[in-house]
Design a protein around this nucleic acid. Sequence first.
DNA 1: CGTTAAGCGAGACGGTACGTCGTGTCTTTGT
DNA 2: ACAAAGACACGACGTACCGTCTCGCTTAACG
Lengths: 195, 195, 195, 195
Amino acid sequence: MSARAPGRPRSAEADEAIVRATLEVLLEEGFRGLSVDAVRQRAGVGKATIYRHFPDKDALVVAAIRSLHKAVEEPPDTGSLEGDVHALFAQGYLSDPRITSFAPRLLAEAAGSPEMHAIFRSALIEPRRAFLGAILRRAVERGELLDDADLDLVIDLIAGPFIYRLLIDGGDPAVLAARGAAPLRLLLEGLAPGR
Amino acid sequence: MSARAPGRPRSAEADEAIVRATLEVLLEEGFRGLSVDAVRQRAGVGKATIYRHFPDKDALVVAAIRSLHKAVEEPPDTGSLEGDVHALFAQGYLSDPRITSFAPRLLAEAAGSPEMHAIFRSALIEPRRAFLGAILRRAVERGELLDDADLDLVIDLIAGPFIYRLLIDGGDPAVLAARGAAPLRLLLEGLAPGR
Amino acid sequence: MSARAPGRPRSAEADEAIVRATLEVLLEEGFRGLSVDAVRQRAGVGKATIYRHFPDKDALVVAAIRSLHKAVEEPPDTGSLEGDVHALFAQGYLSDPRITSFAPRLLAEAAGSPEMHAIFRSALIEPRRAFLGAILRRAVERGELLDDADLDLVIDLIAGPFIYRLLIDGGDPAVLAARGAAPLRLLLEGLAPGR
Amino acid sequence: MSARAPGRPRSAEADEAIVRATLEVLLEEGFRGLSVDAVRQRAGVGKATIYRHFPDKDALVVAAIRSLHKAVEEPPDTGSLEGDVHALFAQGYLSDPRITSFAPRLLAEAAGSPEMHAIFRSALIEPRRAFLGAILRRAVERGELLDDADLDLVIDLIAGPFIYRLLIDGGDPAVLAARGAAPLRLLLEGLAPGR
DNA sequence: CGTTAAGCGAGACGGTACGTCGTGTCTTTGT
DNA sequence: ACAAAGACACGACGTACCGTCTCGCTTAACG
């Protein structure tokens, strides 16, 4: 018995070319300047193929965003919580221009669209929370944090102000560097076990 | 020399009708569904009039957002920082559906548009930060906070996780109520002077 | 090594199914509504098979039209020219709805396409001219027409007004019956030898 | 009471430019090569304007055909029926390439579309019949034709074979010149009063 | 107190992008 | 080895929207 659909299968190359072209146009021309025909031309692909792979332009953008997921690398172990977090920020954990540029737009689409919101979470938010979570678990093992600390809450406390600043200041890296780390010290003091 | 332009003056009624219609369409149809013609029809106004009052569609949206500013009320003095902050959250400081619905969309427009971003900050962010600031200054006067506390930073620490949760969870009020207040207690402990 | 049969020799069936499906779609949807995919689906055939049998859509149409040729029957001998011609008209010599429906469309394709025009002539025009020619030759033998009459010209004179009316009046059978035969009498008088 | 519609009136210039551009593209590229965007570009007009003036591409073509009507000139009086008819043919009464090229295509559209057929008749057929009719009436006055001749029938007899040849031979002018006039002599003999 | 310049609703205008569909070619799997 | 199924590149179709431009009319300040 065959689980295979008949006919010529969808081209993975075309799919990849479309997503890559979308990302390129998105970065060069911005969201407003993204046209399906521009993607079509750059990908060297037929318009019908785009619409066969993605129901509409939004889905195309979502796929492009999702493709960024792979780019995020594992955070290194520097030996201390503070070092780990700084390393995470330093490696562009959230200040990656692609993220600061795309995330708000994606967020806008997510408003009123539960599926879009789920994609937003799974493609952008959760992987980053997972990295922070790993760092925090290492800190607990090291004894830097209380055993019963609510790690999800701690993540909120670390990432929240950072994101907030990101949104308010429009992703200016200098401002982020200056203010992003500030809450961390405060938290480290409040959450240290021996106190 | 005349300080007055000749001819019929611009109609304040038309201006108001345009802004109101824009808000209505924005709420009913969302950002994507907002078309100048829809505003025109709902406002009972000529298209040229819209473009005489606002240079383009973005300006129209900005004006509509700005018109929401008036709705925010002064936060009451409950006698304690914790009470004030809870009161602020309780009165819908940020969970106002108009805010949770508009803010992300506006944010999306703000990405890559400095003017839009400035509007976003001045119309939505700053008024709310001002309220929190007033509350915190009262707390300093009461002796609940250290005199030399960086209030802007404290605001980040309080509002940041809240906003972060708002964005992640899509503004679900129940979740906000459960998690929004959590960081506050932690902060209050860490920032109390007598320690 | 496998002695498996080299696939089903379905070629002839497929060809016939394609032509039949083309005719059906042509009659139901008209020329504009004829799409190769519609033919494909109705014939239960692969698209590549169609293009293996016919170079392009025009050839497909030509084949469909040609398949109508077989339907035309030999004209009977009634004993007189007038009777023969009336019999020819009566048997639907040209008022066959398939002809009145297809001919103009085919004509349209023929404009500017010599090959199409040749098809048009050989599949529709010439067989009918041949019938008229046979009738006229019988008339010459009977002495009803002058020996040196230009039979091609006589055919033009008989068929021309008829076709002209057909095109002008849109193939309305009543009109054709009323006016189609009229020129014939006039011609018979003018071409009778004993005058 | 105002008979004037509100708003900016449709542009007669745009309409004319569209029709002219359609005719040009039609003549240069042929029917198959006619695209609305080509017309749009050549006319220097917005696509929406085309579709505001004409419901679809067919209507556009019809309007272009109709615009040819004005080009037909009055037939001169040469003093004799035969001369008049020759003059009519000589001036391109029916051999105008625009006619021989468009008529069959229009005919094809007319099949199954009464409105289209009516346009075909009123824009192409009737004006030409009217010219022939005028010539024939002059002939009756001159005594060249019987007073009680059915002029409509005579028109059929003159025009019919000519059109028939036109269609069969694809509008080759040489063939038309050779064969188109042949039936005329026959008819003149048969319809002359003094016989 | 009438001119007159600029406002007004209405809607057509030139463009540009959208998403659908049709053509003729190709690449799969199944028989 | 050929057939069905259907994906592919290309390009036209008809719709919607943006921001500009006439229309004919109102409205108010100035002469």
